[in-house]
Simulated scan of single mutants.
Amino acid sequence: MAESVPRLLPAQQATLDVIRMPASQRPVYPQRFAADLRDRASDTLAPMVGAARALDSRGLWVSKRDLAGVFGCEARYLADSDAPFEWSVPAARGTVLHKAVELTAHRRFTPADAVDAAVERLIDDDANLGGFLAAATEGERADLVANCVALLTRFDETFPPMLRSWRPAAEIRARAQLCGGAFVLNGKYDLALGSPAPLDVPDGNQRAGKVIIDLKTGSRSPTDPEDLRFYALVETLSIGVPPLGVGSFYVAEGRIEHEAVTADVLDSALRRTIDGIGRLIALRQGIQRPRRVPGPPCRWCPISAGCEPGQAWLSDPDD
């Protein structure tokens, strides 16, 4: 039996209109498209293999955070990388919300029930975050749950209900190895809808069909579009077919910023990734002094107290 499409609120319809595209209009890629992209990446990265292996014999792992770090304030990136990560209520909020969204994609829950179930699942299944949640005070846990219930309620009112035929999936880990594993592009998508499809033709062309979405519980970042293009690149290299589109859904705004994935988008993502890998290697080898780029992140940077450009930015009343 076909699924009935529920009547949608205006914000839900607006989101659906952005991410939906009729199958007949979805781009088709030749069978070797991803293989050619991989070959280009491997050929360009080949001179860096020795340096990557010297830094880590298991391969140099590269994430969207690494790329954002080397294209932003490198000093802050290194400081954040050296500092041990500690869970907090704000840090846990996104993960709990993502788990709650995953649960609601497969079963109808009220927001409060979904968040409670998400917290219980994470305590049982995630030794790291689960330990923090289990040890949290009553006040911390109440604050976390209240925040996530509010965000999930907002999500439910502005994002269209996910039908099973959309094949919704949350918290998807994806990796692409290059140069025999010397480089590992690593990503985790908050939400994915749809799937690619092979065409019934002799040349083996593939039709794009998946939309990758990042759920944003905080404010916008200038790197959000580039983060998603990196995900599109990882997806293409890992499964062999580009996604149909990528988007950041800003939960508080109830709005999605979407971009259709094209060959040009993937080419841009590949060039940025290769450039970023070169910068990352040079930074970790210590052959270049890390750049200091002042801006809003100075407010929570762990080294801002001893950073001249950061202190100048923080003391400027216009900023």
Rank of each mutant, 00 (worst) to 15 (best):
L233Y: 07
R121P: 09
V211K: 08
L228T: 07
R164W: 08
S304L: 08
A312P: 06
D264E: 13
L228V: 05
Y250H: 13
D156I: 03
Y29H: 12
D56K: 07
D156Y: 14
Y77P: 07
Q311T: 14
G306Y: 05
A54F: 05
L191D: 02
R291M: 01
T44S: 09
L8M: 09
L67K: 03
V211L: 11
E3L: 12
L152V: 04
T95F: 12
A75I: 05
L163W: 09
H106E: 15
A269L: 02
A232K: 13
G187R: 01
E226I: 02
Q206L: 15
P160N: 01
C179K: 05
D43E: 14
R271W: 00
R7W: 09
D17A: 13
R7N: 08
S304V: 15
G139V: 14
G209Q: 09
V5C: 05
W166D: 12
P202E: 01
D227N: 12
Q25G: 03
A192W: 01
N147C: 11
P111L: 05
T223R: 09
A232L: 12
D264T: 08
Q12M: 05
A14Y: 01
D39I: 06
V89C: 12
D319Y: 05
A176W: 04
S195V: 11
W166F: 11
A35R: 01
R173V: 12
Y77V: 05
Q12C: 05
D126C: 12
G295T: 14
E120V: 11
S81F: 02
T236P: 12
D17C: 07
I287Y: 00
Q31T: 09
